[in-house]
Design a protein around this nucleic acid. Structure first.
Lengths: 221, 221
DNA sequence: CGATAGATTGATCACCTTCAACTGCCGTGG
DNA sequence: CCACGGCAGTTGAAGGTGATCAATCTATCG
């Protein structure tokens, strides 16, 4: 047993990696198993469903993140799904072992707390972005959010390296897919964004940020 | 120095209480001071502002909560305000002392982590509620959210014991104040909610939950 | 290669914002 | 203590934004 973990990767180093294909559900609301997952490679989205079966996307987890946090730490009504959107590699640890280990070591526990805070920050940014009342503002804000979290600089441009569909954007911003399609088209027409091998490319982030401010301004030309 | 803290109240027990009047801003984005606040009595709302100065409400903190979490744990762009909506009592601890103390004691650190998870859960519920596309669904979901977090059972009814205005609901759900006014009126007409000394009273929570499911159903009569 | 899911485009119309005018309420200062 | 100012709430009318429906097209995957 290794008690010298200094970070999350160390903590999970002894666990064997598990491969998941794109689109596999890792955790469902009714799951009785209670492992803690560490995402080594790929991306996982969390979401709930409406009565009509529409997805309401929460966030996208990436390398170094852990989940599920809420149901692991406190007893709660489970309503959230975790599903890969990539071919992904995860590691899993039994809840009991996880808690025994972290409760015994303030240092690793502090690292986990910082990771939790980081994931909470992501949720707050999403919450904040959803409070724009105009559809195009919510879309632009979400693109800026994705650029910040998954963007890789390519010169002056930013490539959003996460497989995201218009449907995902729609399910993340409370907008219909058709409207997302039209707004994205408009942003491409304005040369603010583009495509690059299946990923969204931000061509001019400064202008895109300016566009967000203009969109919410009722007094724009 | 007291090292026997078993919970948050203990941890802050040595700090002297500070009184704030309703409407006072405790933390602004540009604040350089970096204390951690423990809310002993009252309510504090967190929010950001749009370019046009509109409030985007995040959550309402209550007795036993601590803030600000994000800016205390990780370096970040500050854009969030914390403001009392009640006459409130808080305790404050210097950031350095706070971190020295919790890093030295896994037990109190674990208590704080659980509190953080609880506050994260609140944010996720808000995020999820904002993903309803219809205004009346978002309002009903928000009322159910308030009932769950601040409601006191009065027989079969639930009194939401937090001073909340229609403007607050509007700023929390990305809806105009006028529409909130009309929808609340409609819910009163249906006898689902009412008033009781300035607070919102949920008269029939089961029916209100059913109303939420109906609202989002396009095939309703 | 067929099936399924996502994307596109156009037309229609409902929902909700906006604007405006008015009322009510509360805290503050003279 | 009253008057005032400002913010919150109410109500009505009008117009725009974005949802919905439908038809077609494309991409992906077994």
């Amino acid at each position: 047993m290794k008690n010298t973990s200094k970070n999350l990767a160390d903590l999970f180093s002894e666990q064997h990696p598990r491969s998941y294909k794109k689109g596999q559900i890792i955790i469902r609301p009714d799951d009785t198993s209670n492992g803690i997952f560490y995402l080594e490679k790929g991306h996982v989205k969390s979401y709930s469903l409406t009565e009509q079966g529409e997805q309401k996307n929460h966030i996208i987890y990436k390398t170094g993140d852990i989940f599920p946090l809420i149901r692991s730490f406190i007893p709660t009504n489970r309503s959230v799904f975790f599903e890969t959107i990539d071919n992904s590699t995860l590691k899993m640890m039994e809840k009991e072992y996880f808690f025994t280990t972290i409760k015994a070591d303030a240092q690793i526990l502090f690292e986990i707390t910082k990771k939790i805070i980081e994931i909470m920050k992501t949720h707050i940014e999403r919450l904040d972005g959803l409070e724009y009342t105009k559809a195009n503002s919510r879309i632009i804000d979400y693109l800026l959010f994705l650029a910040d979290h998954f963007g890789k600089r390519k010169g002056k441009k930013i490539l959003i390296e996460v497989p995201i569909t218009h449907k995902d954007i729609a399910d993340s911003t409370a907008i219909s897919r058709e409207t997302v399609s039209r707004e994205i088209e408009e942003l491409k027409r304005k040369k603010l964004i583009g495509d690059k091998n299946k990923y969204i490319l931000i061509k001019n982030i400064k202008k895109l940020e300016r566009e967000l401010k203009l969109q919410s301004d009722p007094k724009r030309l």
